[in-house]
């Protein structure tokens, strides 16, 4: 941390992520839907492992309750048209 090309950029990003996760939880969304990991551009295998793991975990949580509602709304609007 703090060795980012953008200097303290990852330190700030980490703080924002912590805050946002807590705030999402308070708003009724699982904090696990948001994840931050630090992976260097030279660590392709690590990157794949992280993303695949995240996809697996997200699937377990099921669809985002907000996007379900939004999708329903757009279906309704299409029917109206």
């Amino acid at each position: 941390m703090g060795e980012c090309h953008y200097q303290s950029g990852n330190v700030m990003a980490n703080k924002r992520m912590t805050l946002l996760q807590k705030l999402l939880e308070f708003s009724g969304l699982h904090a696990d839907r948001l994840r931050v990991r630090w992976v260097s551009s030279a660590e392709a295998a690590e990157y794949v492992r992280e993303v695949s793991g995240f996809v697996e975990d997200i699937k377990k949580l099921g669809p985002n309750p907000l996007s379900v509602k939004r999708a329903m709304r757009s279906v309704r609007n299409e029917q109206k048209d």
């Binding site: 939880e25 308070f26 708003s27 009724g28 969304l29 699982h30 309750p65």
Partner: peptide
């Protein structure tokens, strides 16, 4: 009071 709700109730409340 909001902290005490379960997560789905919180979502409904804020929506």
């Amino acid at each position: 009071r909001v902290n005490a709700m379960d997560i789905d109730a919180r979502l409904r409340f804020w929506k």
